[in-house]
């Protein structure tokens, strides 16, 4: 059973999303809705942490792009963290590494957020 709402937590003015492996199926679309809910609440800083995600596939990429677009529309910031080697490679292939900065750990990404502006940087 997918528990998307438990797949996220708020740290100050930042929300951390944990896509796990359900991002690789159309159920992952619900993560976009969760993200929208946070945006409606005024949150503009989102960290997507992949420590619990094995390999992101093409469906996962399309869902991540959906999330990135929503945050971009809200003039927010999104950062990736805890990417495995294989996922760094996947993101490089599909061009996401040029769009979203990634950090070794969730803590590093949150730390970066504390001084972040509101633009997505590559």
């Amino acid at each position: 059973m997918i528990d998307i709402l438990n797949g996220c937590r708020e740290v100050g003015d930042t929300v951390v999303l944990y896509p796990q492996n359900y991002i690789n199926g159309i159920e992952g679309e619900k993560l976009e809705q969760v993200c929208e809910t946070f945006i409606e609440k005024g949150i503009r800083k989102v960290v997507i942490d992949f420590s619990e995600t094995d390999i992101v596939n093409s469906i996962g990429v399309s869902i991540l792009i959906g999330i990135i677009e929503k945050i971009k529309e809200a003039e927010g910031v999104v950062l990736f963290s805890s990417l495995s080697k294989i996922n760094i490679e996947v993101f490089r292939i599909v061009g996401l590494t040029k769009l979203i900065p990634s950090f070794a750990t969730e803590a590093d990404a949150i730390k970066e957020m504390s001084g972040a502006g509101t633009q997505i940087g590559g």
């Binding site: 159309i26 596939n57 093409s58 469906i59 990429v61 399309s62 792009i65 959906g66 599909v94 061009g95």
Partner: peptide, 30 residues
């Protein structure tokens, strides 16, 4: 994965949606 999805016994709407997502993910299309 696309081959597996379209030959699966999944609901047609699900197959179609997954197929679209796979194409979009492959081309990084929003």
């Amino acid at each position: 994965e696309l081959g597996t999805e379209i030959t699966s016994a999944n609901d047609f709407k699900r197959i179609v949606k997954s197929s679209l997502f796979m194409v979009m993910g492959s081309f990084s299309a929003s």
